[in-house]
């Protein structure tokens, strides 16, 4: 009798996972930077109480982007799940998170393809989407962000300076 393979465990997408980890690190630090320097982002987080935290989890096994509000600023806490976060946003699989980090899908596209689920307050998740949106506009130049933003901002000198600051001060130095 022919034998068939059973109990197949299809391995791990290690490379994709590392790209998403790096992307979440950059996204987290950009959001942290913007939360102290960008008027719009500062307004979005104003209503959140001190210690407010959110976790964006890639299902089924991470990574997770965890951030917390301390001293009126968002801080990038790390890439491990925080089950007691005030707001948990779940990205349904790694391939969607990968496309998001590679600027192939924007926050709205991910939503449109039913790629995220939210636990917690809807108004808070709307704020987070707007913050991520702002961070995407900041991190990716127009040539990349025009495909993923509903409206791509003009590449002014001012925006480019802000981007340079976000990348050097925010992502690299964590300020």
């Amino acid at each position: 009798m022919k034998t068939y393979k059973t109990n197949i465990k299809p391995g791990s997408a290690t490379a994709q996972k590392w790209v998403v980890k790096a992307g979440f690190f950059a996204l987290g630090r950009t959001i942290a930077h913007l939360s102290a320097t960008d008027d719009e982002v500062m307004r979005e987080i104003a209503a959140w109480p001190e210690g407010y935290s959110f976790s964006m989890n890639v299902l089924p096994a991470g990574p997770c982007l965890v951030m917390e509000k301390l001293n009126n600023k968002m801080h990038f806490i790390g890439l491990d799940a925080k089950p007691d976060a005030d707001m948990i946003v779940e990205v349904k699989n790694l391939s969607i998170a990968f496309k998001m980090i590679m600027a192939q899908l924007g926050a709205h596209d991910v939503y449109a393809r039913h790629g995220i689920g939210v636990t917690g307050n809807i108004a808070d998740s709307m704020k987070l989407i707007r913050i991520i949106y702002k961070a995407e506009a900041m991190l990716f130049p127009k040539i990349l962000n025009k495909n993923i933003l509903k409206e791509s901002p003009d590449e002014t000198l001012q925006l480019q300076v802000k981007r340079l600051k976000a990348i050097t001060l925010g992502v690299i130095l964590g300020k």
Partner: peptide
Amino acid sequence: AMNDGAMLPNPKI
């Protein structure tokens, strides 16, 4: 209205 979930699927911001 700005924080209503239905704002998200609107194709224009």
